[in-house]
Design a binder for these strands. Structure first.
Lengths: 250, 250
DNA sequence: TGAGTGCAGTATGTATACAGAAAACGCGGA
DNA sequence: TCCGCGTTTTCTGTATACATACTGCACTCA
């Protein structure tokens, strides 16, 4: 589908949602700033009805906050909020891994996960790793996590994981690109990939506690990446999510 | 505020949301049933704009499901979904308790929780427990859980806990009333109250792992209640949430 | 007889007009 | 100069009209 087709086929609501999200994540709308419907109409070019729907959607996506007297403002996050959200995701993914392990998954449903694991191995093996490989890693990593979550076979859980991961700084791949600029980059990637390997092994052997613990620790890698990237102040431009911080680090 | 004042002051959107939620939870709208906007307009008496907003809100509350081609249907849950949601809540509350324990809370902020604990003790001490006491327990229990979650001092976490607990069958007090009809009622209440005591103790002593484990187990009490109530088929009318089950037990 | 097509009815998506409430602004007085 | 109050403007909440997409049914043709 060409871009023009997309523009034609996608609903005005979705279009407004995308445009507004982009404005927020790029920092053109500052945290704490009130965003009026009329202003949103100007930005997006669609009428108030779909704009309003988009605002509601962005609210429960977590990017906006409702003002008691009506209207919305851009939500402001602290560094602690971000770290907590990562821990939260890790906890949920840990639960998913434990469910998968305890309930047992057939060899067939484990197959796609193992293929994904092998693909990731291919990418990680390079030294040094190209930027393209990093980019491919991000895609494949997201796929791995999605497959893993599905193995829990728990719709309510998957729903919550998706919700938490929708926050731009809490997704499994949020800081991989930023990490690419770090000297420890390759090392961190190798460790992360080992986590992947271990969790698959644990699920296969029905070791629920192990699977859970590893996925929790896995998420803490993202937390470490974030802290490293902020401290080193290297390539902060690779961390668009930081535009949401109450007091910007830059 | 009198009921008429509420009707006057509350927005049409909220009114529609309440009316529709009531229809769903009472089973007058069946799981899987499509619910058109026009139908919702008839039910609620407000116009399409607020009705549509209410439908969107109910969707991310988890009671409705979006149909790909447009519109919404009442979501259907399996017994497994319900049990998973309870485990999910337990996991999140466990994380909250661990945060509280690890980060440390001052004696002053622990005070309201301890008062709440004492109040619950008063209620539980009765034997046999009156229906009024059960009802009071539900209220006080909800307060205890809310206070506990706040001790985590983590806005993202509290947000998710509130969201999960909004599901009518996943809240901490969902099955307490049903439990009141069980012969094991008093016993179960005493055990639950002991969990409460232990988690406060663990937080006070900064025992994060213990606090987390206890809150997880605490949620499993709700799961046991649910299973008992369903098996015994006693007072299923006290379990309005069962109207959401794909294949009703009754 | 079965499958496909066209039409009617109905649903949702969108734009816009209007009313009421909140906020911003300026003016006057202490 | 600062505070309070009234006015004006702007914003949100709501209703409704219109356009478009979808669904279901009947009819036709192979």
């Amino acid at each position: 589908m060409s871009e023009r087709d997309v523009e034609r086929s996608v609903s005005q609501t979705v279009r407004a949602q995308l445009a507004l999200r982009d404005m927020i994540l790029s920092g053109r709308l500052r945290p704490g700033e009130r965003i009026s419907e009329l202003q949103a109409v100007d930005i997006t070019g669609v009428s108030r009805t779909p704009v309003r729907l988009a605002l509601v959607r962005l609210e429960d996506e977590g990017l906006l906050q409702a003002i008691p007297s009506g209207g919305f403002m851009v939500k402001a996050f602290t560094e602690r909020d971000i770290l907590d959200s990562i821990e939260l995701r890790g906890t949920l993914e840990g639960l998913a891994a434990r469910f998968a392990a305890e309930r047992g998954v057939g060899a067939r449903s484990l197959e796609p996960l193992k293929e994904c694991l092998a693909d990731l191995d291919q990418l990680v093996r390079q030294d040094p790793i190209s930027v393209e490989a990093f980019s491919a890693y991000v895609t494949m990593n997201a796929r791995f996590h999605a497959l893993l979550n599905e193995l829990s076979a728990s719709a309510p859980l998957i729903r919550e994981i998706d919700r938490v991961s929708a926050l731009p700084f809490a997704s499994p791949s949020a800081f991989v690109m930023a990490q690419s600029a770090l000297p420890e980059a390759h090392q961190i990637l190798l460790i992360g990939q080992d986590h992947h390997r271990v969790v698959v092994d644990a699920i296969e052997n029905r070791e629920g506690a192990r699977a859970e613990a590893v996925m929790r620790e896995h998420s803490r890698l993202a937390a470490r990446n974030l802290r490293l990237a902020i401290r080193n102040r290297t390539h902060l431009d690779l961390l668009p999510a930081l535009a949401l911080l109450k007091s910007p680090v830059e």
